[in-house]
Amino acid sequence: MLEDFLFQVEMAAPQIVLGLVNGAFYALLSLGLAVIFGMLNVINFAHGAQFMMGAFVAWMLLNWLGIPYWGALILSPLIVGAFGVVLERLMISRLYKLDHLYGLLLTFGLALIIEGVFRNTFGSSGLPYAPPASLTGAPVDLGFMLLPKYRLWVVVAAFVTCIATWLVIEKTRLGAYLRAATENAPLVQAFGVNVPRMITLTYAAGVGLAALAGVLAAPIYSVNPAMGSNFIITVFAVVVIGGMGSILGSVITGFGLGLVEGLTRVVYPEASATVIFVIMAIVLLARPAGLFGRA
């Protein structure tokens, strides 16, 4: 009986760890969505497209300018973030006084346009992007499984980024401005803070997080125009489960649901693609504001 159980654990562990890798992407992407929603009240449906752009910009930097992975990890979020500044200033900022639905429709339209442009330019078959030499080679032995170095790096990098983002928002003066402006933006502005600029930079930061996730994803998934839309549906389910706009909630839920997905793949593989949506339905019925959301 005990042996049986140990055997089960041994079988399950690799799937759980791989679930954690997916969870790292869920966490990073839903964190960006939470940051944007908290400040702008806009559900950024272009998030998947911006994630994809992050991967493509990394590919372009490498193949057109010879800038390697580590440079792309910094440059790509900055470039895609700058693109976010343009989107926010030119279009999204016009919708703040309207219902959430308008922001959602606009960003959904933007996502379709961005994906279309990349599909026309690069085709839909996908481009290869090799992990950096320092993260290839012999996999790391975790005792119960061998994990490719690069996947371990993704989990660590995503975790550190999430914690750093949370610290900035909860513990710094800038974070206090952000939290206060989420509650009462006009008053924060009357205190002398340039709130419109802060909103623009918050959107850019959220978009930058998506692009960072895109660069991290490039060596794992092939760089292709649909890579964002494959992810983003699941990520929206994660956001709904965690609670719209909750920073810590999005991080915990992201990693947690990655684990649940991995576990399901062991217990009942057929359900692994749908388990998150089943959980979403249950959470919506039992706690419509999400696990960590404020009603």
Partner: peptide, 24 residues
Amino acid sequence: MSPDAIGRAGIGYCPEERGIFASL
């Protein structure tokens, strides 16, 4: 001027509902 420029010019504002932030 925008509200932030007016605030920085040297006018402090205490609103009717007090404007204390719950998350701070």
